[in-house]
Design a protein around this nucleic acid. Structure first.
Length: 719
DNA sequence: TGAATACCTATTTTT
DNA sequence: TAGGTATTCA
């Protein structure tokens, strides 16, 4: 079968030359030489190159992070470049932390404070440089500028739209529409017939950021890029860039400017994993930088992660657009990639629950099992059904409070109530989802003739009391309700006893009949609980709220569970077993991607990224009856092009399960104390006691939880 | 100004 | 199907 085989290297230095470099490392730091010797020849070659400008095209799973870490050490220990003279950038803060961690372990002695000041995301590095190394003259910003996050941006936009009476459609998409505008994408959405005031909003927003001396994330990159390009910018010892393929145009300019003010430049990435085209990045940055900075190029051709079968499928996903050498598997032949059809996502989830349980019983940790999908909506369906079946699922990666709309609304409410701007509170009170009825309720605020009040909440209490109206009318009753609501808010005391949600009168706001009610309630409870904890350290209410905003929601429980991730979120991770769920035509590639060649290629790379996450096995599924808007009832055209030598096609999921699991038993009062049970969220636990109506279970760190027998979401663990 | 109706599109997400 | 916007009519 035509599986990738080990290929001879294209260009390697003579063995004695490489050995000499290792000895050079040994003289500087024996541990570095030992560590280098554990790398393969291509990795060694790149990490120790004498070239001062180098770009590494790393194939997937080829150990590029190891090369990057060794390069930094080489530059530091052998070339004598101080760590604080290096700018080292990664795609996420997490990746940066892991790199620093790795370096600290390899360094002979603990680094001085500030040694890693320029290690971080490009944004973090740009911010540090702008705050302490670069000249802001002429930029419109002053030293000591602040940084505007998403919530801050939205608030500023809201104020601008109001102040200037702008008409800007799709409030929920203002930020993405502004990003699109900057990238030159069409500005119309939905059934807009004509342009709105988006352009004007963009201009006013840019001016306002300078006026209030705050930068958004794009400003950081652009301003740092511009300031670095001047002769006044500081000279750096080395610039090292990870995930080069994901650099957007502004980031490429910053990287170039950094490289030009540095004696060493080293960049690593994989053009086949460029999946952020919608932010403006594209796989051509490798060629562009190689040319413009006259870089030497290096390859890392060996994949240490996946079986040959998985790599063959991944290679097939890329088709003709694959870049660099063919993928070389260093692993023995494994099982074939399974291409499987299911009736619906629900059917798949039932099947997966059994399949995962078997793997888990066979010793595979839950967190080594991953379900990847193109969209988050697809994952939500699978998650719901897996949890129903008692499979522990890791929490989705948190996107801050914005993923929890009710909690985000509550935080905005608490903040704007004690703020002085009545308009802000008005927006919150009239919120479509959680607010009170219509604009008529509050009337138009008249800033003139109203006594200055201490807070926006007081303003509205006074204002509503002064509204004319028929006593007893529905409108008046609602006004009384709002006044009472605001008064409760103002009297808020920590710590709260009883149920804060009920005490604050939040229950009616959380739409008790809505299908998201349970989630909203949970989020709001969590927000209030976190706020209470934050308030203990930070008694000032506004400061506590701002800290809470910045920190985001804390992860619930531990993360030991099946990982459900979008293809984007899975980048950089690896798992023993991977399920690519819902690969229907219209989803992979997304129907919209057919309009644009680059977008279509990017969908191929997404499939490639998904497949190449797996070490041992992959299942690709498609659904004969996908949910509405989730693709057509046929497999992705790319599944049909998968190599028969490496894949097994199946239409009967059941036949693939060796033996049915023991039937789970319904919850009964018969369970003696000590019975092992499992709960979808709390995981394994043991029965403490039970009676005719409820059973009480102890779940390790979650403590004791009572469950009503009638609605018991527990499963007895088979003995 | 507001209710009722027609009509459009559907991602991905780091800082 | 849902969550928006646009249009129409009272």
């Amino acid at each position: 079968m035509s599986l990738p085989k080990r290929q001879p290297p294209a260009e390697l230095p003579r063995p004695d030359a490489l050995a000499a470099r290792i000895e050079q490392a040994r003289a500087a730091l024996p541990g570095l030489a030992n560590s280098l010797q554990r790398l393969d020849l291509w990795q060694q070659t790149a990490a120790t190159t004498p070239a001062t400008r180098a770009v590494v095209r790393a194939q997937v799973g080829s150990g590029k992070t190891a090369v990057l870490a060794h390069r930094v050490l080489w530059l530091h220990m052998v070339q004598g470049i101080a760590l604080e003279q290096m700018a080292v950038t990664t795609f996420t803060t997490r990746a940066a932390a892991q790199l620093v961690d790795r370096l600290i372990h390899l360094l002979p002695e603990p680094p001085a404070a500030g040694a890693f000041r320029l290690f971080g995301t490009l944004h973090a590095v740009a911010r540090t440089l702008l705050q302490s190394d670069l000249d802001l003259q002429g930029s419109g910003w002053q030293p000591g500028f602040g940084v505007l996050d998403e919530a801050g941006s939205l608030e500023m936009l809201q104020t601008l739209v109001r102040q200037h009476s702008l008409d800007v459609k799709f409030p929920a998409q203002w930020l993405s529409r502004l990003d699109g505008l900057a990238l030159g994408k069409p500005v119309r959405r939905g059934n807009m017939r004509s342009d709105d005031d988006l352009q004007q909003l963009a201009e006013r927003f840019a001016a306002e950021r300078r006026l209030t001396n705050v930068m958004n994330f794009d400003d950081l990159i652009c301003q740092a890029g511009a300031a670095m390009a001047t002769s006044l910018a500081p000279l750096l010892g080395a610039v090292v860039v990870d995930e080069l393929q994901d650099c957007a145009p502004g980031e490429v300019r910053l990287v170039q400017a950094l490289a030009q003010r540095s004696s060493q430049f080293f960049a690593v990435g994989d053009p086949n994993q460029s999946i952020y085209g919608w932010r403006g990045s594209n796989p051509r940055v490798f060629d562009e930088l190689t040319t413009s900075l006259q870089c030497d190029t290096f390859d890392l051709p060996n994949n240490y992660r996946s079986t040959p079968e998985i790599l063959a499928a991944a290679q097939a996903a890329l088709g003709q657009i694959g870049q660099g050498s063919a993928l070389n598997s260093t692993r023995a032949t494994g099982t074939k990639v399974l291409v499987i059809q299911h009736h619906t996502p629900q059917h798949e989830a039932m099947y997966l629950a059994r399949r995962f349980a078997q793997l888990n019983q066979g010793g595979v940790r839950w967190s080594q099992l991953a379900v990847l999908a193109r969209t988050r909506r697809q994952l939500a369906v699978i998650r719901e059904h897996l949890q129903q079946q008692g499979v522990p699922c890791a929490e989705p990666p948190s996107g801050g409070w914005r993923d929890r709309p009710a909690a985000a609304w509550l935080l905005r409410l608490l903040d704007s109530a004690i703020d002085t701007d009545p308009q802000r509170l008005r927006d919150v009170l009239l919120d479509n989802r959680y607010g009170f009825g219509t604009a008529k309720l509050l009337g138009k605020p008249k800033p003139v003739g109203i006594e200055p009040t201490e807070s926006a909440a007081q303003f509205w209490i006074q204002h509503l009391r002064a509204q004319p109206g028929t006593p007893g009318s529905q409108l008046q009753r609602q006004r009384t309700e709002v006044v009472a609501f605001l008064q409760t808010l103002l009297q808020l005391q920590w710590p709260m006893h009883g149920d804060p949600v009920a005490d604050l009168g939040l229950l009616p706001r959380l739409r008790p009949t809505h299908r998201d009610h349970a989630r909203d309630l949970r989020d709001v409870r969590q927000a209030l609980q976190q706020l209470m904890l934050t308030s203990e350290v930070q008694p000032d209410r506004r400061a506590a709220l701002h800290t809470l905003q910045a920190d985001g929601p804390q992860a619930l429980g531990d993360q030991e569970g099946v990982q459900l991730l979008t293809l984007h979120a899975a980048k950089g991770l690896e798992f023993e077993h991977v399920v690519l769920s819902g690969c229907n035509q219209g989803i992979i590639p997304l129907a919209a991607a057919y309009a644009d060649r680059d977008a279509l290629d990017e969908e191929r790379r997404l499939l490639f990224v998904g497949l190449s996450r797996a070490r041992d096995s992959v299942e690709i599924s498609w659904h004969m009856q996908p949910a509405m808007g989730q693709g057509m009832p046929m497999p992705s055209e790319w599944l049909l092009a998968m190599p028969a030598a490496a894949c097994q096609f199946s239409d009967r999921a059941e036949a693939l399960l060796p033996a049915p699991l023991p039937q789970t038993q319904p919850c009964t009062a018969e369970w003696p104390a000590g019975t092992a049970v499992r709960h979808a969220k709390y995981g394994p636990g043991a029965v403490l006691r039970s009676d005719a109506s409820e059973v009480v279970v102890h779940f390790g760190k979650f403590g004791e939880k009572p469950f009503a027998l009638l609605l018991c979401p527990l499963q007895k663990v088979p003995e």
